[in-house]
Design a protein around this nucleic acid. Structure first.
Length: 570
RNA sequence: GAUUCAGUAGCUCAGCUGGUAGAGCAACGCCCUUUUAAGGCGUGGGUCCUGGGUUCGAGCCCCAGCUGAAUCACCA
């Protein structure tokens, strides 16, 4: 049984057939010549130079039609924007036969159809730059009606297509209909292109490393598992690419970077999607101080390239991306925002600090975790302007080198902007013995039941034993960076196709109750309604539903006679 | 995972104390040769998210479920 078409979909199929009857192919195969785009044409056209605009050819989607008898206006949308087109009956159809205008344009072309137009540019009496159409051609017929948001004089949008579920599931419609959505994604690409340019100019090499990994390393997270048939082994979708990029530094590259899709089998919310994009870069012979300078100049450049300015309004906050950024150790940050000096404190003291500050904690939490909690709870949200938080406790950073002045700390920084973490970087741990010990610490944690502790990657340790030069590495969450730079609060707004639960297909088949009634009826062809109802022995509601279903599908018919109501099979 | 809110025409939304399902836009028909949220007249269009229950009667009340969003928890 086919899915029921809405009335509007049926009309569009009729138009499609009518086009074919007129000898018009609604899906022609050949290419069309396009000489101009909507936005340029609108921006550049001047009436003084009308002579230069005598013949323009554009292609795009019809977004609206305003028919006024023998003349009409339509809006044509291409990838650059929207331009108005003017269709005049007697110019399109100079002879007796007005079919092209009266039938094809007025009736058979619908909102959403792709067309090609040829004509000249002019300004209407109201001053709107428009294309005076001399020829047009159908390029592709649209069978489903698009939503129709409209903007009034005051800029207010009416009937916007807003339901987030529909917008994400049918992003193609969202992109066609909601201005601004496309812009977000263009900016996203600009962010990545700018970063590439920045790294390439510095002489670093873009690389690709495995997504299917036998050991999911480089971060703490639950991985997706899959299975390789030929090898008969489990493989994991990567949760990070850090350990592979470091192997390449061991191999002698000076600087490598990768835009990586990572996968984590965890919850979804407005800042988490199961697959997401991270850029990681590793540069030999550098430390985290160098990396801070590198990062801040990158961010300043990104803000300028993407938004044309080094400052940006995000929510209520005006953020300046102009380098240099404030640098604050984690201990100083806690001193400043929580009012507590935790330097030198042990587990017990830290736990007391948490209690005093009203931060939840339990016995399983070690020193590092407690400090991290205090920071996350009391400091992070206050850091609006770009700030490097440095020198994290060692327990939290098993791949990071010990701090040169304090063995309890690591040479790590995170860049916090608008209260959120944007980048994370280390002076990388290149001491293979220290690294092995740190992995063993992780193993102990995992034996204690910490299911996020890292696996030991023996091949990575072997690589380090051959020698890795001093290196600094940095990772940026691209999705969150794009959220920041485009002022979007949800990760779903910066992913074309965010993960959703699968749609459930509704079957148009007869329900159990409908079948029951239909079978009873089939035996006798015609029955008294109350008799049939009694025979069916259904509740009122079920009976009502079943009968409505049958009459709707034209399988049964209810007739009123003098004797009462009778039901007959159709 | 918890709580709250939402789901009604293609889109945006009304729907009173439980009593025949509504509007604007879109669609369809007619009129209209520089309009622009075009306009005028007319017409059609519904699985009220799904399944139960209560009731003479449910879009509305009750229970369960589905989907989405927000907040929280968890998680880099």
């Amino acid at each position: 049984m086919s899915v029921q078409l809405s009335e509007q979909e049926q009309f569009r199929r009729q138009s499609l057939a009518a086009m074919r009857d007129l000898g018009i192919n609604p899906y022609p195969p050949e290419e069309v010549e396009v000489t101009h785009y909507a936005a340029d044409t609108k921006d550049s056209f001047k009436e003084e130079n009308a002579g230069e605009w005598k013949e323009v050819k554009l292609a795009g989607r019809i977004m609206s039609k305003r028919i006024m008898g023998k003349a009409s206006f339509a809006e044509l949308k291409d990838h650059t924007g929207v331009i108005q087109a003017y269709f005049n009956r007697d110019e399109l159809c100079p002879g007796e036969d007005k079919t092209l205008y009266n039938e094809v344009f007025k009736k058979l072309i619908d909102r959403g159809d792709f067309v090609w137009i040829k004509g000249f540019v002019f300004k209407t009496q109201v001053g709107e730059t428009s294309i005076h159409v001399e020829e047009f051609k159908v390029l592709s017929k649209s069978l489903k009606p698009l939503p129709f948001p409209k903007t009034d004089d005051s800029g207010k949008v009416h009937d916007a297509f807003t339901d987030p579920e529909q917008r994400y599931r049918q992003r193609y419609v969202d992109l066609v209909v909601n201005d601004g959505v496309k812009e977000t994604f263009v900016k996203r690409t600009k962010v990545m292109n700018t970063m590439r340019q920045f790294f390439n100019d510095a002489g670093y090499l873009e690389v690709e490393t495995p997504i299917l990994q036998p050991i999911p390393g480089g971060a703490s997270a639950r991985p997706f598992v899959t299975h390789h048939n030929a090898l008969n082994i489990p493989l994991y979708l990567r949760i990070a690419n850090e350990l592979y990029l470091k192997r390449l530094i061991v191999g002698g590259f000076d600087g490598v970077y990768e835009f990586a899709k990572d996968f984590r089998n965890e919850g979804m919310d407005r800042t988490h999607n199961p697959e997401f994009t991270v850029m990681e870069i590793y540069v030999a012979y550098k430390d985290y101080n160098w990396m801070m300078e590198f990062t801040e100049s990158l961010l300043e450049r990104l803000a300028k390239e993407v938004n044309g300015s080094s400052s940006l309004k995000v929510g209520d906050n005006e953020i300046s991306f102009k380098a240099p950024y404030r640098r604050l150790t984690m201990i100083d940050a806690i001193k400043e925002y929580a009012g507590v000096d935790i330097s030198g404190m042990g587990v017990e003291e830290l736990r007391k600090v948490c209690d005093d500050l009203g931060i939840e904690n339990d016995d399983s939490m070690g020193k590092g975790k407690l400090i991290d909690e205090i920071f996350g709870e009391k400091c992070e949200g206050n850091l609006i302007q770009p700030t490097f938080i440095t020198d994290y406790p060692i327990e939290m950073s098993p791949l990071c080198k010990r701090h040169r002045d304090n063995p309890e700390l690591t040479e790590r920084f995170e860049l916090i902007i608008n209260g959120k973490e944007i980048a994370n970087a280390y002076t990388e741990l290149n001491d293979p013995i220290d690294q092995r010990e740190r992995f063993e610490e992780q193993l102990k944690l995992s034996e204690k039941g910490d299911d996020e502790a890292m696996f030991i990657d023996h091949d990575f340790l072997r690589a380090l034993e051959y020698g890795m030069p001093p290196t600094s590495g940095m990772g940026i969450g691209i999705d969150r960076l794009v959220m920041l730079l485009t002022n979007n609060a949800s990760i779903q707004e910066v992913l074309f196709f965010p993960q959703m639960r699968p749609e459930i297909k509704k079957g148009p088949e007869l329900s159990e109750n409908e079948k029951l009634v239909f079978d009873l009826l089939s035996a006798k062809e015609t029955m008294d309604l109350s008799e049939l109802k009694a025979a069916a022995n259904l509740s009122n509601k079920q009976w009502d539903k079943a009968m409505k279903g049958l009459t709707k599908n034209s399988l049964a018919k209810v007739e009123k006679t003098d004797a009462g109501l009778t039901v007959s099979k159709v």
